[in-house]
Amino acid sequence: MIRWLAALCLFVLGAPVHADEMRPVAIQFEQVGETEWRLGWRQPIASAADDRMAMPELPANCRIKGAVRRQMAPLAAHGTADVTCDGAVAGRALGWPAFPGHGEAILRVAPLDRGVQVHRLTPEQPSATIAARPSSAQVWRSYFDIGVEHILAGWDHLLFVIALVLLVARPWPVVKAATAFTIAHSITLAAVTLGFGGIRQDVVEALIALSIVFLAIEVARGGRDTLTQRLPWLVAFAFGLLHGFGFAGALREIGLPEGEVPAALVSFNLGVEAGQLLVVAAVLAIMALLRRWRPPSEPLAVRLVSYPIGIIGAYWLVDRLAG
């Protein structure tokens, strides 16, 4: 069990230093005339292995018209091009060929006479067939998957949830705290996405890092009588409002399909909740095993895990404040 805990600490310490890296490739294919389309894409650059000259693979009946316009930045490559298509694109495939440094791409297709459709591309499915009539089910499925991956790949949200479970420890209080966190981040996520308010993203990210440090300190202090120990749901709700701004920033990066904003928003949030419940269940299961096999070791083990969580959160806080 001690070896398991050591491995867990090393795993947490080895988490990516850039926490909320839910930054997929974004591809926009927009119709501007009867046969004319505009292609645009943004490719995050995660490593030297990424091909900065990569571009989407067009449907077989489409071709680039004129020059491809590119703009390079340290962390992203942007491109646009004018496209001409012979006939309809419905039933044709459009994809992204280069996935070495990132795990997915979000494709938005916007015909003139039909609603916007959204497709999620992965290394296993690098292309998608453009639908003649996109269904709401396709939007629900795509954004649910995006929400699950966001919470599981967004290390700042993930560490906050882990620290919250470690602090509360007991199943029923954990359920109440997790529910309060979910309600709170749903409120701010919806408010920002629908245009009712917002906070600068750099400020949000710094405050999220601060929330991780705060919870890590509370966990490390053990069983002392604090507000967080007495009313964990209240603290979870307050910080959930903050994390909702972070979720909204990620959703803004991905984009929302016109005409399907409510479906995309709800399904993304449900995906986040599903991923969060997986994390909560996994941490509670590990704690239950420890409590069963080595009961006296549980307080020490929980405190041991809180230190790397706090160190990573403090690093993110300083890094984000420094810009």
Rank of each mutant, 00 (worst) to 15 (best):
R3V: 05
G14R: 02
R23G: 01
A26L: 14
I27S: 07
I27L: 06
I27E: 04
E30K: 11
G33N: 10
W37N: 11
W37P: 05
W41S: 08
A48G: 15
A49R: 14
M53Q: 13
M53H: 06
A54E: 10
P56C: 14
P59W: 04
A60C: 07
N61V: 05
C62M: 08
I64Y: 14
G66L: 09
A76K: 06
A76T: 08
A76Q: 11
A77W: 00
H78R: 11
D82C: 14
G87A: 13
A88C: 02
V89S: 01
E104V: 02
E104K: 11
A105Q: 07
R108E: 11
A110H: 06
P111Y: 04
D113G: 05
R114I: 03
V118L: 13
H119E: 15
P123V: 04
E124A: 14
S127N: 13
T129F: 00
A132S: 13
R133D: 15
S136M: 08
A137W: 07
Q138H: 10
V139R: 05
W140S: 09
W140H: 09
R141P: 04
I146Y: 10
I146W: 08
G147F: 04
L152S: 12
W155G: 09
H157M: 09
L158S: 12
L159G: 06
L159K: 04
V161W: 02
V161P: 01
I162F: 09
A163P: 00
L164P: 00
A177Y: 04
F181I: 12
I183Y: 04
H185C: 13
I187F: 07
T188C: 10
L189Y: 08
G198E: 12
G198D: 12
I199V: 13
R200D: 15
V204K: 00
E205A: 09
A206N: 09
I208N: 08
A209N: 00
A209T: 01
S211V: 09
F214N: 02
G223A: 15
G223D: 15
L227S: 09
Q229E: 15
Q229C: 12
Q229I: 06
Q229S: 15
P232D: 12
W233P: 00
L234D: 07
F237V: 03
A238I: 08
F245R: 08
A250M: 02
I254M: 13
I254Y: 11
I254A: 11
P257M: 06
P257G: 05
G259C: 02
G259F: 01
P262A: 08
P262E: 02
L265G: 01
S267L: 05
N269K: 01
L270T: 04
E273Y: 06
A274L: 10
V280C: 05
L284M: 14
A285N: 04
A285W: 08
I286K: 02
M287N: 05
M287C: 10
A288R: 05
R291F: 07
R292G: 06
S297Q: 11
V302Q: 07
V302R: 12
V302A: 14
R303T: 06
R303S: 12
Y307I: 14
I309F: 11
I311S: 05
A314K: 01
L317Q: 09
L317M: 15
V318M: 15
G323N: 07
